[in-house]
Structure formats: structure tokens, C-alpha cells
Simulated assay, not measured.
Amino acid sequence: MPVPNEVIILVPGLNTQEKNEFLEIFCSSLSEQLESFTVQENGEIKIAGHTGKRFSIYNKQELYKTLDIYEAYYMDVFASNKLSQKDEKTKFIRGGEVLIYWLISPIWLSVKESPSLFIYFIISAILFTGWYYGILAAVLIAIGQTNSFFGGAIPLEMAKKIGFFGESMKGWSFWFFISILSSFLPISSLIDICEFSAAYLGEDTEGSTIRSKTRGRVLNLLEDVLKSSNYDRATILAYSFGVAVATDTLADYHREKFFRYITLGGTLKVLSYKSNWGEREINKCLNNATITTWIDCYSNQDWVAAKTPLPKGSSSDKMIYKKVSAKSSSFLQRFLGKTHVCYFYDSSVWETIIG
């Protein structure tokens, strides 16, 4: 009996930076967490300029399958749009827009549907507000020192009063509070993810450009890998914000090659409170015959993500939910988002991926 060849295409979240970083994390967990199989790494594999890794999976002493794994890298699009690395004017203007965008949101309704998600949203809102408070104070102080607002002249007396108010905002208690939070919370990452998510959902030219570039990175790999006749089965595996990107890409992807879709810790529930875009894309995927099965792995201990919602009136049986438990997770771990990686340490998730 011939040994089946399978390919897995990874769509990472926004918590990785370097190309193939998520690929390394995934492959390391594959070797460590897969209990019922033995994993042997066989080096690099290349298709049309894309570099992945090849593994042999053994069931006891018998070769079970050959597995190739590739990462769809789109972090360059994210990196070029990081709000935390922009100039003070952009932080002041765009930061205010993003803060209002998320605060004025039906996401508050999640208190009934997903209390854990609601708690995390409250925490994120407090952190974002604290960050913007600091930006606002710095801008007001700069006005007092330069008698101008980003190049526009301001009367001297008014500028002094504005600058004095900015100085009063920088009370020692505020900065002590912010410094304590910054020492163990990735505030900059939170700001960048909130801004990128808002931009991705945007209906303007910028949002369309970001979505087009991001989808293009994923689509390029899909086209080159899935058109290969070397594979008996294909799996698209997306994690965190990568679930939004992959769902957006796969919704309109119709080819002869069929594949499974597996999602881990998806953010589509979060995004659905701000836009009906997510519901439309989910519905398209469920009606896409190219996708044979959609397995959605979620955890109630993962406060960063939530169970992918089924669109209202959907009669599709394609979606299969898999509940994952983050063993021995504390309130602090959930608060810090540490449980968001629980899927990579659950043997049943790996059995699902490999099985």
C-alpha cells in the first residue's frame, strides 16, 4: 500500500515577526506533542521558490504518511503598518481613531455570549486608553514648548496653558501605573494588533489595500503548492488573526484541489461585533465545495479568541467544533493571553491535525 503524501499550509497570527518563525514553532510542537506517532524530520522541501519542511510520520514502526509543511508569510504587511512605530502625529491622530473605533462597538454585548472575551476586551480597552493618554500628554507638552500644533502656529499664551495641562497629566501616579503595566504586558503589540485589525476591516482604500496585500501573500502559496499533483491530501491550518486572513482568502478560492480547513483560537467572533464582513466570509467558506471540512478548535480559557460563530440560518454541517482545555491555567495566564497557545500543547489537537 503506497504511503500517502500530505501538505499543511500554515497561516499564522500577528504574534510572529520573522519569516518561517511560526513554521518552526509548529514543527517543534509537532515533534514534542504528538503522542501516538513517531515524527522524523527529513529536511527542507521546496516548491516554486517556497521553502517548507518535510516529515515522516510513523505509527509504531510502520511509515504512516509523509508530511510537508509550509508557512504563508504576511507579516511584512503587518510590520509596515505598526502604529507603535509611527511618528507622534500619526499616533495622536490614528491612535484616537482606533480607540474610538473599538470603544464605540457592539462588542460590549459579548458579556452575555462570551464573558471571558468581554473581560479581555475591558482589559484591552483600559490598556489602549492608558497608552493614548500618554501620547496625548506628550503632544500637549510639545505644544507648550514649540508654540505650534504639528507645524501650525498657536498663540503663545494658549500654547503655555495647553503645555501646563499636559504637564499636569504626567502626574507621577499615572506614569508609575503605566510603567508597571508595561513591564509585563505587551502594550505595543496590543496597539499594533488593534490598529491592523481596524484597518483590515476598513471599507476605505487603505483597508482594501491591506486586505489585498495580505490575501495575496496567502493566495500565492496556495496556488503554487495546491496545484502540485504530489499530494493526496491538503490541510489549511490557521491560527489567531490568521483565521480571519485565511477565511477571507478561502471564501473565494475555488479550485479542483479539495482540502480540510482547521482553525485554532480564531478571532472571527471578535471581529464580527464590528463588521458583518466576517459572517459573509464564513458563510462563503461553508458553501465552498473546495473545503471538505472545517474543524474549529477553541478554548474557554483562551480569552484572546472565541468559538467561530455560525452565520444565522446556516444549515451547513461542514463545521465541526473541538473544545480544548488549557490545563492548569490561572487567571493571570488568561489575563496575559498566555493560554492563547494552549492548542499547540494539546495532544488531541495534534491527533486531529495528523489523523
Rank of each mutant, 00 (worst) to 15 (best):
S31I: 06
L310E: 07
K91P: 02
V349S: 02
V324S: 00
I354A: 04
L222V: 02
F335Y: 13
W175F: 15
K91F: 04
K213R: 09
D252F: 02
L181V: 06
F196Y: 12
K213E: 12
K327T: 08
T293K: 12
V111M: 10
F331H: 11
A138F: 02
K65I: 14
R255N: 04
L67E: 15
I47M: 07
L127C: 14
S275L: 05
S240Y: 00
S36L: 11
E6W: 11
S347E: 13
F177L: 04
S31L: 05
A326G: 10
L336T: 13
K46G: 01
R280A: 13
I187N: 15
R233L: 06
L103Y: 14
D224F: 00
L127D: 10
V98Q: 11
R334D: 11
T263C: 01
K227C: 06
V324R: 00
Y120N: 15
M1L: 11
K327N: 06
N15A: 09
V39D: 12
F344H: 14
L222W: 06
G355D: 10
L250D: 14
F121V: 04
L237R: 08
R260G: 01
D296Q: 04
D68G: 13
L136W: 14
G144N: 12
M158Q: 07
K227E: 08
F177Y: 11
D76F: 03
A142M: 12
L264N: 00
T205N: 15
E21A: 14
D87H: 08
F331A: 13
V139Y: 03
E32N: 04
P4D: 06
L34P: 10
I191Q: 09
I107E: 14
T51N: 12
T66S: 05
K307T: 01
S197T: 08
L336R: 07
K307D: 00
I25C: 04
G355V: 15
A289T: 05
F55Q: 03
K269T: 13
